[in-house]
Design a protein around this nucleic acid. Structure first.
Lengths: 223, 223
DNA sequence: TGGTCATGTGACTAGCAGGTCACATTTTAC
DNA sequence: GTAAAATGTGACCTGCTAGTCACATGACCA
């Protein structure tokens, strides 16, 4: 975590450093991020950087805290739309709120997803933590769905969680990589076409999850 | 592509270099791979390396050719199990054959998946090529499935392809990262537990895809 | 044997990385 | 005011990288 000297800094200077770091991680990931570039882009001296942070992973850890905080605030701002949502509706809402967040803070999202999903898969550590939290949340969710009778109790919980996580991650990656190609990400994310695509994907998932275990009979076809 | 000098090399020397390169890419990806380490581990001089290859991406391109060749041979070896498979059975067979390949050549698979999926997502090029090929194959497959009446014709083809690709990639990543933790990957992949897990995932996908479009009525529950 | 051409080699260059540290500057305390 | 403590700074160190090149070694042929 950053040293006290960093927290003592005036707000605008802190923000300049944070923004430079976000851009750096978004562009190069954690492994290939250059502290030299970060200091150059934030207009501070090399020595100062090491007076604020232990090293670049220290900056990154701090960034992840900032992202978590921003995300929490963002989600709180989005009033949970209805009272009586079933679990899948709630999941769909969550995924979409996540999409909104990612398009509202694209660089931040890109930096986080890049390091966590992409490098994290191989270097562990940060990813493992994130992964565990997600799994716990989704496990609680799917168990609730079973109690509510929305999911067949014979469905493998671990499996359902894996499926939901895979989709959630796939969508995040999709939004971030595709979204980068758009000139107005927010507009693109909110477009009917994008929303419909996401909806459909989640419906396929939902339809598959609701009841699956029983191998299901052949010849269900559309006829 | 490698220069003639490389192809003139005795087989064992060529293999030593290729193996060192595979290990390097598997461990560090393309971006962070070190030619210094590759030459050190293959017991050749730095200068020789540059007499065989243009640079490290040249080695990588060659490796991908080797992998493609090995994979083709591997798939040919696996006799297509039955004559009258429906499309989903065929897809399941393909995914499983892919898993077998990945566990038979784990380092190769790790190197390829790491560079293509992980770095490729951001650096494009190699990934784009692979991506397009996969999409074409899957598109043909899903269209066939519609003709056969196995998939509702109202299902969005592009969407179905995306879903199949996502799952195929997710499973590959899962096998490679989880498999690395096992002492005997092949045994782990072939274990009933692993196979069952994959089966279930694919069944969820299949069940979701067979018929989805029609929003589907609420209250399908298991009651 | 001597000559020619292909191949092997590792010291060397230039550039960038992370990190340090002696010193300059500013802020605070008295 | 003056002393002390905190903060700012960039030249410098070591270690890595990709890539080059003058030279050594080997293979082939007359």
């Amino acid at each position: 975590m950053p040293k006290q000297t960093f927290h003592n800094l005036p707000k605008d200077k802190r923000e300049k450093i944070v923004n430079a770091a976000i851009d750096e991680f978004a562009e190069y990931g954690l492994e290939n991020a250059s502290t030299n570039r970060i200091v150059a882009n934030s207009g501070i001296a090399k020595g100062s950087f090491y007076q604020y942070f232990k090293d670049k992973t220290d900056v990154f850890d701090y960034l992840m805290e900032v992202v978590a905080q921003e995300k929490t605030d963002f989600f709180k701002g989005k009033h949970p739309p209805q009272k009586n949502m079933d679990t899948f509706e709630y999941f769909r809402w969550m995924v979409k709120a996540g999409m909104e967040f990612n398009s509202a803070y694209p660089r931040m999202a890109q930096a986080a997803s890049r390091v966590l999903f992409v490098e994290g898969l191989y270097y562990g550590k940060n990813f493992a933590e994130y992964h565990q939290k997600t799994q716990e949340a989704l496990t609680a969710m799917i168990k609730q769905a079973m109690k509510n009778g929305e999911v067949d109790p014979s469905v493998d919980v671990e499996l359902a969680v894996m499926i939901m996580e895979t989709w959630s991650n796939a969508i995040t990656t999709y939004i971030i990589t595709e979204g980068m190609k758009q000139k107005d990400i927010m507009k693109w994310v909110r477009s009917a076409k994008t929303q419909e695509k996401i909806d459909k994907m989640l419906y396929v998932m939902e339809y598959g999850l609701r009841k699956t275990e029983s191998k299901f009979e052949k010849s269900i076809g559309s006829t």
